[in-house]
């Protein structure tokens, strides 16, 4: 286990909204300017804190969807109809609005070129990403980082979305990505369709013999099913890292 975590205080910073645009019908991309940002690794997340004029405070966590090479921070925020923070971020926030943010948070669900340069043995193992819905956010940062730094590490993404209109960050997804559409696929769709099952994992991901480093991100039910199936297929449980969002209750 890595014991190299940076133990410094995470102060609240002022995030200024540069852009808030609809990425898909349910997800907005917030582009933020955060003076004092110390940098991050792909896969890390931030806490956002909103304070209402009545003093009410709410905090939520969001994965960073932008790589460290981009000075602005990008968040892909899914609008949850019964949420109290996400509808505000998607529908109300405008350019030049300011809210508080701190991070980066989390040092386990990360992948970076610099770590692979330091640990050559680990770097020979490919990286398999498995995303459900907006759970693709941290992987967008990883793929973008991988491409910008021309990393030799083999990396693949298997990405489950409900329909083509809900596929996020299309500009970053390349030939390393397999998309499966679970609800409806357009005529002539050449990707996969249906939920990810054992057969699709066998077809579309690195097999256990290649000892991939596997990252799974998505809703709890998705993450639990993926992890269990991967272990059943023979993957080492300790090589599977999970980030869950959403919940059986009210998610962010």
């Amino acid at each position: 286990m890595a014991r190299a975590a940076v133990q410094r205080r995470l102060n609240w910073l002022r995030a200024r909204v540069l852009d808030n645009r609809m990425e898909t019908p349910r997800v907005h991309r917030l582009v933020l300017d955060v003076p004092g940002w110390s940098g991050h690794l792909p896969g890390q997340h931030v806490d956002v804190r909103l304070t209402g004029e009545d003093g009410y405070v709410a905090e939520r966590s969001y994965s960073l969807a932008s790589p460290p090479e981009v000075p602005q921070l990008h968040l892909l925020v899914e609008r949850l109809d019964d949420g109290e923070v996400s509808p505000y971020l998607t529908d109300e926030v405008r350019s030049d609005d300011v809210f508080e943010l701190r991070g980066p948070i989390g040092g386990y669900f990360v992948w970076s070129v610099s770590a692979d340069r330091t640990d050559r043995d680990t770097a020979r193992r490919p990286v398999q990403l498995v995303a459900g819905g907006a759970g693709v956010s941290p992987f967008v940062a990883m793929l973008d980082h991988h491409r910008r730094l021309d990393s030799p590490t083999r990396m693949q993404l298997l990405y489950s979305a409900r329909c083509e209109q809900e596929v996020l960050a299309r500009d970053v997804l390349g030939p390393e990505t397999t998309i499966t559409l679970t609800r409806e696929a357009p005529a002539g769709w050449r990707g996969e369709t249906g939920r990810i099952d054992a057969g699709m994992l066998q077809r579309r991901t690195f097999g256990p013999a290649e000892r991939p480093r596997t990252f799974v991100c998505g809703p709890t039910v998705f993450a639990e099913a993926m992890a269990t199936t991967l272990v059943d297929l023979g993957h080492d449980p300790s090589a599977i890292r999970i980030e869950r969002f959403g919940s059986t209750g009210e998610p962010s």
Partner: peptide, 13 residues
């Protein structure tokens, strides 16, 4: 979170 009970863990169950 009300009646929900979210699940969190770093790896497989």
């Amino acid at each position: 979170v009300g009646s929900g009970f979210p699940v969190l863990s770093a790896g497989p169950t």
